[in-house]
Design a binder for these strands. Structure first.
Length: 701
RNA sequence: GGCGAGGUAGCUCAGCUGGUUAGAGCGUCGGAUUCAUAACCCGGAGGCCGAGGGUUCAAGUCCCUCUCUCGCUACCA
């Protein structure tokens, strides 16, 4: 059931729908859009029927949260980022056949129909549970809409789903003193009904389809993640939410509820395909329902479960749809050693990049491809970016082109010379050139884009070596006719590069074709094959790519060097971001309500010393400490194991709140609390006396 | 704690179903060259393939244990 579609009649290629709560950055580009675009462009170059589909993902709590925070409507938020994101894609040459959005009418209709169909088939189960409800605002509260005191660390601004202070995962119903962020009211519990997709029912299908069928052709990270989920046992998953932003649940009892964003988003691929087909006068259905269609999802690793488990189950439940043949998910890209973060502004934003490096899209595309996180998380560094540009694009690719064009102009006034006797080396070099389409194809078709980009560079190396060995600048002095042949061969390689670079370096390819005075390839243009254009396989099949007597243009540099100071400027910018983040963090918590001296004097804080520490078994964060408080030596359990090793804190002076009511944590009574704060990296720091000679048990006031 | 992925030259990565002296690019060192954006081209050095056991005639490649990184998940609250 998982056989590869041998020679697909058409391809449906989807790229993860970007979420419109921010612009997009290099991580998105490297993980999803560049590989998907390379793949799609390549397929078009070999004459395939391709629908390359994407769009903005615009529903969900995070967007309504953001809107609330900024005092605007959700529509304002999505319109803003949809525009920015869409423009970034155009600017970077991502050739979607259609870029839609999930707020579009066609999508609301498609997703609703999908839901109704499954509903009518009885594929859902219904369940009523008690959820927090805001009487004043008359709505249920998503976890993120509730704040309260973290039951774990006492942080008073914990969100319902997670405490940002101690990092623990929470349920909104666990919060102490919960408050609605919408009205400030104290929420009550109220019953609510939801629809669930019983994923457990699809376990057999998923096992057979993925675990048996795709063991070999899916990437290990993708396969492993799926296996992990399936082996863990699948549970029913809610497909509706109590929210007012999204697609209304289109069945009885669905009032005031919307489809869960993860139910509707992947269906957005289908909606977007419909929109495209409508516009192009095509039939969308074969792209999603015909067995001869090869469906591929390009995503990042955070989406694996949705694209490999949940969405296929939905498609399977529906019944008429084909399943993805592969989901070549990438891992994550880090930036200068730290995780990319939209909220912390730790990113290289695409729109900002183009302001600072105008017309250098291909440099970023290339760097991100050559360094793509295909098998594991990878780090983007500006130094690496500079090196890829200066040592590869400039020195190898750009330099070769420049040499060929300059020499052709110098010796033959820009006219491709007539070759005469091909030497053994000439023939071998031309034969090498003809191998490249196959070499690069093979890498692309196995989703090994970084390897493919390096093979492309090897073709430029072939050209450089050929010139270095044949030395036309020497030969010209005694045998001009021989130089004609040499330059002819070199020009064929240059032309090959112009064609084969197109999926990776589309802007370069276009410019190079202009310099060589050849037509753009079909995939650059919607109209299909252009008269006189040279396509992928022509590089192998055609005897001559650039004929004698053809006139080429003047030399232009394809790339410029990137100076150290430009790189330094980017590093400084990131450093500034880091500083700004630190400030922001400090400013985060507003001052709490005023207390009286009596309130304060209730706290009994003492100087103490940690005399023993050991990790509590089977937990990740807890350390069991023995602390000498001066009064006694007592046990305190503290969630600091991720910041400190037990042995390094023995002997540490600390501040202890000694009269906190004892509490059992994991069966061990904890008699007090150690005072801690955290540094800018989120690592915990003890609050303690910074001079020696302060005895244990002394009070703090 | 469970599960998954990764740990191979200074850096970024290849090494398929186990088989001769472990590969590539960058960096580094040396050479050659000047058409070219001081670029290209040639060559050298550099690896107890995370650690330890085991299977085998033979292990980076298979099995077990441990360890570090990342992710998911659980527990704790």
């Amino acid at each position: 059931m998982a056989e590869e579609v041998k020679s697909p009649a058409r391809y449906t290629i989807t790229a993860a729908l970007p979420y419109t709560n921010g612009p997009i950055h290099i991580g998105h580009l490297a993980g999803v859009y560049v590989p998907a675009d390379i793949y799609s462009r390549y397929l078009r170059l070999i004459g395939k029927d391709v629908a390359f589909i994407c769009g903005s993902d615009e529903h969900g709590v995070a967007i309504s949260m953001k809107a609330k925070k900024e005092g605007v409507t959700p529509k304002d938020v999505i319109d803003k980022y949809h525009a920015i994101i869409k423009k970034s894609f155009v600017d970077f040459g991502i050739t979607f056949d259609n870029y839609s959005r999930t707020s579009a009418e066609v999508h609301h209709k498609t997703a609703s129909e999908f839901f109704v169909k499954l509903y009518e088939q009885g594929d859902f189960i219904e369940e009523t549970t008690a959820q927090l409800y805001d009487e004043e605002a008359q709505q249920f509260l998503a976890d993120r809409f509730v704040v309260g005191t973290c039951p774990r660390c006492g942080h008073e601004e914990a969100y319902g789903d997670q405490c940002e202070n101690c990092g623990s995962t929470l349920n909104a119903t666990d919060l102490i003193n919960p408050k609605s962020t919408i009205s400030g009211a104290v929420p009550s519990l109220k019953e609510t009904k939801h629809w669930f997709l019983p994923l457990d029912k699809y376990e057999g299908f998923l096992k057979k389809w993925i675990l048996e069928g795709h063991k070999k052709d899916w990437k290990p990270n993708v396969y492993g993640q799926c296996k992990s989920w399936i082996d863990d046992g699948l549970k029913p998953r809610a497909v509706t939410r109590d929210l007012d932003w999204g697609i209304p649940v289109p069945v009885k009892g669905g009032e005031g509820k919307v489809l869960y964003v993860w139910f509707d988003a992947p269906i957005g691929y289908i909606s977007s395909t419909k929109e495209w087909a409508e516009r192009e006068g095509k039939d969308w259905e074969p792209y999603w329902k015909d067995k001869d269609t090869k469906l591929l999802h390009f995503i990042g690793k955070d989406n694996i479960v949705f694209h490999c488990i949940i969405f296929p189950s939905i498609l399977k439940a529906h019944g008429n749809y084909i399943l993805p043949e592969n989901v070549p998910a990438n891992e994550f890209l880090n930036l200068e050693g730290n995780k990319l973060s939209t909220s912390k502004n730790w990113a290289v934003w695409l729109h900002e990049y183009l302001e600072e490096f105008p017309n250098m899209q291909d440099v970023l595309r290339y760097t991100l491809t050559a360094n793509a996180p295909e098998t594991k998380d990878n780090d983007f560094t500006w130094k690496d970016f500079q090196a890829r540009n200066n040592n590869e694009l400039v020195a190898i690719f750009g330099n070769f082109i420049n040499r060929v064009v300059v020499l052709t102009n110098k010796y033959f006034n820009g006219v491709v010379p007539n070759p005469s006797n091909f030497s053994k080396v000439d023939k071998e070099t031309l034969a090498e050139l003809k191998k490249y389409p196959e070499i690069i194809s093979s890498s692309i078709e196995r989703y090994r884009f970084r390897e493919a980009s390096q093979e492309l560079m090897n073709l430029a190396r072939l050209g450089n070596k050929y010139l270095a060995d044949e030395e036309p600048w020497k030969v010209i002095k005694e045998d001009a006719e021989r130089v004609q042949t040499i330059m002819f061969v070199a020009l064929q390689i240059a032309t090959g590069l112009a064609v084969l670079s197109e999926p990776f370096l589309p802007f370069t390819s276009k410019k190079l074709k202009r310099i060589l005075n050849v037509s753009p390839s079909a995939s650059c243009l919607p109209a299909g094959r252009v008269e006189g254009s040279i396509e992928w396989n022509d590089v192998s099949n055609k005897e001559t790519l650039l004929p004698a007597n053809h006139l080429i243009g003047k030399a232009e540099l394809l790339y410029r060097k990137i100076e150290d100071k430009e790189i330094q400027a980017q590093l400084d910018k990131l450093e500034a971001t880091k500083k700004a983040n630190e400030k922001e963090n400090k400013a985060l918590m507003p001052q709490k309500d005023t207390i009286t001296f009596d309130d304060f004097s209730k706290l009994d804080m003492r100087v103490g010393t940690i005399v023993a520490a050991e990790k509590m078994a089977k937990t990740k964060k807890l350390l069991v400490l023995k602390v000498d408080t001066g009064l006694d030596t007592r046990t305190i359990v503290s969630g600091i194991a991720e910041s400190f090793a037990p042995e390094e804190i023995v002997g540490k002076r600390v501040t202890v709140l000694v009269n906190l009511a004892p509490r059992a944590l994991r069966g061990v009574d904890s008699e007090g609390m150690i005072l801690l704060t955290e540094n800018s990296d989120g690592k915990l720091v003890f609050v303690n006396p910074d001079e020696d000679g302060v005895g244990n048990g002394l009070t703090i006031n």
